[in-house]
Simulated assay, not measured.
Amino acid sequence: MKLFKSLSVAAMAIALITSSVSVVGAASSLKGKIVINGSSALLPLTLQAANEFKKLNPKVKISASAAGSITGPQSVRKGIADIGAVDWDASQDVPGFKKFDGQVAHKVAVIPFAAVVNKNVKVDNLTTKQLQDIFSGKVTNWKDVGGSDGDIIVVNRAFGSGTRVNFQMKALAGSEFLSKGSNYKEVKSSGDMKTAVETTPNAIGYMDLVYVTSNMKAVKINDVAPSEANLVNGTYKVWGFGYYMTKGQPDGATKAFIEYIQSSKFQNGSLKKLKFIPISAIK
């Protein structure tokens, strides 16, 4: 009887090992090349997912770059990218941008955006009206919004940025941006925004939470902090879905990569560690 049990356990172990090997083998047989372009806000997520996916599928090559959201669906339309990462659903019209016909939008993340200031700024909370006045150039000194005396330096993202689209629509309620002046800077990417706010005294800008560092401060908006809990409970309004755009329905390695980034394992693991919020958290 003991011998029978031992043989049974061994047989089960061999079966499990064989099953595991076949699953790994099936995964690793996937081949192809995926080119991703677009949102710099989504780039950290894309790079992390690509790193994990390539370990599981070593025969798949993935290249990713970020030059702003609008370049994502543009690259897909031109046929130079398989996936366009964008901070809005580019299959629909949004203020300032017409929809990209024939493209399919795949939700991959919830992105919290925040108004951020240089660490020397003594302001912790701003109202919608104060943000509108600052980013339009109507208010130019921090003392006028509860801070210390100092000229406000406005840092803005260039036109075509998905972060800009979301911040303008949701933090500024559609109010227009300042576009020039001695107290105005314009940057091309989330990384550039991070550097500008970190190194420019009295600066204010905006970015997704992934890029916020100890050398800056994410301020409350209307007394509500930019946190996952506040976003999920509906009190923090400055956020958007991140999308992967494809020309029609994807297949092969592209389809498998999108499914991987949408999987509960990635959404509740690496995605959350990067300060994004799982798409399933928004009902």
Rank of each mutant, 00 (worst) to 15 (best):
I34W: 03
P58M: 09
I36P: 04
L42E: 15
V60Y: 03
T46A: 13
G102H: 10
L56S: 12
D89N: 14
K78C: 00
S63V: 09
A105R: 07
F53P: 06
R77I: 09
L43W: 03
E52G: 05
L45F: 13
S40T: 15
Q48D: 14
V94F: 09
K98S: 15
S69G: 14
A64E: 05
G38P: 08
Q92V: 11
V94A: 11
I70R: 11
I80N: 05
G72K: 03
P44F: 08
V35T: 14
V104N: 05
D101H: 10
D93Q: 12
F97V: 13
G102K: 10
S40N: 13
L47H: 06
G79W: 10
R77C: 00
Q48L: 10
G68S: 12
A50E: 06
S91D: 06
I62C: 07
N37G: 01
K107H: 03
A41S: 15
L56Q: 12
G32P: 11
V86S: 09
F100S: 12
K33G: 04
A90S: 13
G38F: 03
K99I: 08
S69A: 12
Q48H: 09
N57H: 15
V110R: 04
A85R: 02
S39P: 08
D89W: 09
L56N: 11
N57L: 00
I80A: 02
L47K: 15
P58H: 04
V94D: 07
A90Q: 06
V110L: 15
V94C: 05
K55E: 15
K55V: 12
K54T: 15
K107D: 07
I70K: 11
V86P: 00
K55H: 08
Q74C: 01
A109K: 04
S63L: 01
Q92P: 00
V76P: 01
Q74L: 13
G72W: 00
K99E: 11
G32T: 08
A64H: 03
A81M: 03
I62F: 06
D89Q: 09
Q92Y: 07
G79A: 07
Q74I: 11
A50S: 15
D82S: 05
V35H: 02
A66F: 01
L42W: 06
K54W: 00
I62G: 04
G38W: 02
A67K: 10
R77Y: 10
Q48I: 02
Q74E: 14
D101Y: 09
F53D: 04
Q74V: 12
G38C: 07
K33L: 01
G84W: 00
Q103S: 08
W88I: 09
V94S: 05
L56C: 02
G102E: 10
N37R: 13
V60E: 01
D101S: 15
F100H: 13
D82Y: 03
F97P: 00
Q103P: 00
N37Q: 14
K98Q: 13
N37D: 13
F100L: 10
D101P: 01
E52F: 06
L45W: 06
K55W: 01
V108N: 04
A49N: 04
K59A: 12
G102M: 12
S75H: 06
L42N: 03
D93Y: 08
L47C: 04
Q74N: 11
S75C: 05
V104H: 05
V104D: 02
V104I: 15
D82M: 04
V60Q: 07
Q92D: 04
S75T: 12
I80T: 14
K98D: 14
I80C: 01
L45E: 05
K78F: 11
L43K: 13
Q92T: 11
